[in-house]
């Protein structure tokens, strides 16, 4: 991992588990790098499922929620790290590989946007940790409202409310006048 993430260090899923998942997700994601970079087009749940298929035989998770919670945290780290590396490389003039650039015609600034969301999310975490967790599950991991409710142990209604609130707050936070 390129940098430890203080925003996720205090969460209930164990660090070991997150690290194991991080390594595995990173592996799968790097193979699928032509789709990486934009959480909205990346099939994150497919990656998480594939990771589960690999790991469920060797490790016994407490339960499904436990696994999914850890996977959401790890997924966020994988995506943010990938965006950070790519962003740095582009800025630094690296990655001149022609073929890669053709395949990876991501909307300009999508890496940057992801990094900004991640930063803003750390601030939201300070305000209300649960909202940040909901974003992790919904946005980074791609879980549905029902799944998110199960993973976080809260009502589906609460997830819906939190999700609206978090999105609205992040949008305001990321709008130019606040930048």
């Amino acid at each position: 991992m390129s940098s430890p993430d203080p925003a996720t260090s205090s969460l209930p899923a164990s660090d070991d588990l997150v690290q194991a998942l991080y390594a595995e997700l990173r592996d799968v994601a790097s193979r699928e790098r032509w789709r990486l970079g934009n959480a909205q087009t990346l099939q994150t749940t497919a990656l998480i499922s594939e990771t589960w298929l690999k790991l469920h035989k060797v490790q016994a998770w407490q339960d499904r929620s436990h696994f999914l919670r850890a996977a959401a945290i790890a997924m966020r780290q994988v995506l943010v790290d990938a965006a950070r590396e790519r962003y740095a490389a582009k800025r630094g003039g690296g990655l001149a590989d022609l073929t890669l650039s053709i395949v990876e015609r991501m909307p300009a600034g999508s890496d940057e946007e992801l990094l900004h969301v991640d930063e803003a999310l750390r601030r939201l975490q300070d305000l209300e940790p649960r909202l940040a967790q909901v974003v992790e599950c919904r946005f980074f991991a791609g879980y549905s409202e029902a799944e998110t409710a199960e993973v976080l142990g809260i009502a589906e209604r609460t997830v819906r409310r939190d999700w609206l609130k978090a999105k609205a707050w992040l949008y305001v936070e990321l709008s130019p006048e606040n930048a």
Binding site: Q40, T41, Q43, I102, R105, P107, V117, V135, R138, F139, G142, L164, K165, K167, A168, W169, L170, Y171, V172, S175
Partner: peptide, 28 residues
């Protein structure tokens, strides 16, 4: 007020695309 306005203006913000394989960009 700003948060409510944001929701109304950008409902798709951070939401997954409706069809996962939807073609967002023009072909290469």
């Amino acid at each position: 007020r700003a948060m409510l306005a944001a929701l109304d203006a950008e409902p798709a913000f951070l939401e997954p695309p409706i069809a996962p394989a939807r073609c967002i960009e023009p072909g290469s």
